[in-house]
Write a protein that binds this DNA or RNA. Structure first.
Lengths: 340, 340
DNA sequence: TCCGCTTCTCAAACCGGTTTAGTGTGTGCC
DNA sequence: GGCACACACTAAACCGGTTTGAGAAGCGGA
């Protein structure tokens, strides 16, 4: 039973002015005497009045909200610890203005129609595109729909959108280098789904660093960013005739699962196997042994993405935003390569 | 550069009718000839018109969105795998009508003002209250604000709100019973923050079951639902003069951290220690050994909560909704108590 | 005294829908 | 022929804000 909220007319009546003046006073527009303005603001405060967002949205033609669509297969939902922090960052930027974030968690096959509805509804002013794939249809889609957007992650030629990126390569390069320094020569990779740009970038960073160091490319197996995939890939790698002495995973979830498979197979970490993850999830410090990983500022990323979208909406020509890269965080899960 | 969307007037012009008729046709209201209706719908489809949500919200006095406020300390953000699945469930119910969910991720000290703004703004029609604490101020707050709400979890006397609950006790009772059957007599608990109702319920389920079975109450230590807390509590428990032979944790995160501490201290699981978590996160099947846990249908919970809020908004007198309880999922992390 | 220029304020239109209170028209019935 | 009534449709008001264009009041200068 929502209590009836006061309207701008109530405030105007109470302050003895017109609705126009109330609106002007509230929005700090010139042409209102200081004394009148104070009287209006006082009246508003007494009535507990705040402008109605829907009404404001209608007359301004701005929804006052951003959209974030996450398309996941049901079984993969709830495996990603990146988003809560990212969303918290977005909230920091949005909250200042009282704007909000509409989150739509859907399945990949419905993704397209969610964006279409978001655009047709005019319920959001713009969207943040995450988890981009190669030849992702979304940049073209939002362009066709006239829906302002910002790409969260490295943009590709042809996206035509402002991007806010945080490079994950340096952390991989650093991890591989460190492993090489520790004497490892068979360094495997358990990759994420290669259709994702970031998964692909991680793989190529691993690959190129090995090449640069003159090391052979160890085996690569798909891990799908999941615990199950990580476990399966690890089991396969460790039962090879010549198993790798180090494995670099696409993310922490796969790496953590990999740690327990190693344990199960009696392969000591880091004595016989070194392990590296990515994401620096809260668990990494408390696995056994603590998992080496890479830290990216998800919160800052969210905030930067929201601010970039703000500026795109303001009509500015926004250059791509580049955030400080992810940092490699070595922990006890890596060690010197075992003597042959 | 949002392309200008067509309005209801454009559709009316194209179909050669009044705006009223377009509105009636779209909302399936009687008084429009079938032939006219088809003509109108065809015109709308050709123009790609969908009613503007802000305009609709304004005239209907309904925002067409629900709110979900998550208040976490920054360091605890991104540790909870419950919400993605819960949100996906909410989306199922909301998506049917094209409604959305506004997610606000904030800090505990700002929680109150977020609800106040949500109410004053009329940006959401109602809110879902999760993670309730004892004497939680939110039921009274939303009542004062006239903001319709549904409690996600067990309601307490005095809330005065419809609740949608999923009992987590049976899983704990079952876990403790099973441990007792396996011969355990010193069963400890690493509890979540007791100000949370669910954390408290879990603890009391453990306590009461032990009492019922005539077993001594093992030690209880705070684990804070975090990896760090779980690790610290486990270390403390395992270095007692008479350490427990089984530990029941408040959630999987703490339990997983507990597993690695046991390993680090050379305490074999499940030979010398049995471990139980809660939440059945994706990782449980791939820890070493696989973690016994409890499965709750977070997705179904979200869907049920959204539907209950729907009915509250429709003005129905809604009885508390009770979902099937969480189920204990035994895995290899539990085994017979060690011989003394 | 009249004029021009600020400064402050407001009536009315507008945003894009929904809803109320009608206005024709055609049909059935006495 | 006249009346009641259902049916198909519409003009105008409304939701609660913002914005435009104009008016009133005060003041200095010619």
């Amino acid at each position: 039973m929502a209590r009836k909220q006061p309207t701008i007319a109530d405030v105007a009546r109470r302050a003895g002015v017109s609705r126009t003046s109330v609106s002007f006073a509230l929005n700090d527009r010139p042409g209102i005497a200081e004394e009148t303005k104070q009287r209006i603001l006082a009246a508003a405060a007494e009535l507990g009045w705040t402008p109605s967002r829907p009404a404001r949205a209608l007359s301004l033609g701005k929804a006052g909200a951003f959209g974030l669509v996450l398309a996941r297969e049901p079984e993969d939902i709830g495996t990603d610890l990146f988003f809560p922090a990212f969303i918290a960052g977005v909230e920091v930027a949005l909250g200042e203005r009282g704007d909000g974030l509409m989150v739509h968690l859907t399945t990949p096959d419905r993704e397209r129609s969610v964006y279409e509805r978001l655009a047709a509804d005019r319920r959001v002013d713009g969207v943040l595109l995450t988890d981009l794939r190669h030849d992702d249809p979304r940049p073209a889609l939002v362009h066709r729909l006239g829906l302002p957007a910002v790409v969260v992650g490295q943009s590709e030629w042809g996206d035509g959108l402002t991007s806010v990126s945080l490079d994950d390569r340096p952390a991989y390069v650093e991890a591989v280098r460190r492993l090489a320094e520790l004497g490892h020569r068979r360094i495997a990779h358990v990759e994420g789904p290669q259709e994702f740009r970031h998964a692909h970038r991680r793989r190529s960073a691993w690959e190129e660093t090995l090449r640069e160091l003159g090391l052979p490319e160890g085996p690569v197996l798909p891990g799908g960013f999941t615990a199950e995939g990580g476990a399966r890939a690890t089991r396969e790698l460790l039962t090879l005739a010549e198993p790798p002495t180090a494995i670099v995973y696409g993310n922490d979830l796969a790496a953590t699962a990999g740690l327990s498979v190693a344990l199960e197979l009696g392969v000591a970490v880091p004595d016989r196997l070194s392990v590296v993850g990515y994401d620096d999830t809260p668990l990494t410090r408390y696995t056994h042994p603590p998992l080496s990983s890479a830290r990216a500022d998800a919160r800052g990323w969210g905030e930067a993405a929201a601010r970039a979208l703000d500026r795109v909406l303001a009509g500015e020509e926004v250059a791509h935003v580049v955030l400080p890269p992810a940092e490699f965080v070595p922990r006890a899960s890596i060690g010197p390569a075992p003597r042959p």
